[in-house]
């Protein structure tokens, strides 16, 4: 693929924001069939609950993450999961970044 100037890829605005990129990058490291509890994700990302909620909602609106409320015994639990669509969008985003750094080079 040879990209010429002006033909550079668009960066997905949902992912292309520091906090949401961190969320998606972290979730992408988990197995596709896994769901992580909200407080654990918060601990890994070192974000406040309010902040993480805001960004998760934006990612959820875009269909990139799925947030499910469930119960563990009597305590309610919120589980977060990167959807196939979110995983694909993240891969596209990473490919776009690589193309921006080295336009015209094949990216793997």
């Amino acid at each position: 693929m040879t990209a010429i100037d002006g033909d550079l890829p668009e960066l997905d605005p949902v992912i292309h924001a520091q906090a949401r990129l961190r969320v998606v990058a972290a979730l992408s490291q988990l197995d596709g069939g896994d769901r992580i509890a909200f407080p654990r994700l918060q601990e890994i990302l070192r974000m406040t609950a309010g902040n993480l909620s805001v960004h998760l909602r934006k990612l959820e609106e875009a269909g990139y993450v799925e947030v499910t409320k469930t119960h563990r015994g009597r305590t309610p639990a919120t589980l977060v999961h990167l959807t196939n669509r979110g995983r694909f969008a993240f891969e596209e985003y990473v490919n776009a970044l690589r193309t921006l750094i080295q336009p015209g080079e094949e990216t793997s």
Partner: peptide, 19 residues
């Protein structure tokens, strides 16, 4: 939080660090 990156390399490094 909403800030974007001036340099795509910064974004890639952030991804690597977070992963």
């Amino acid at each position: 939080d909403e800030s974007i990156f001036g340099d795509p390399g910064d974004a890639l490094r952030l991804i690597e660090r977070e992963r």
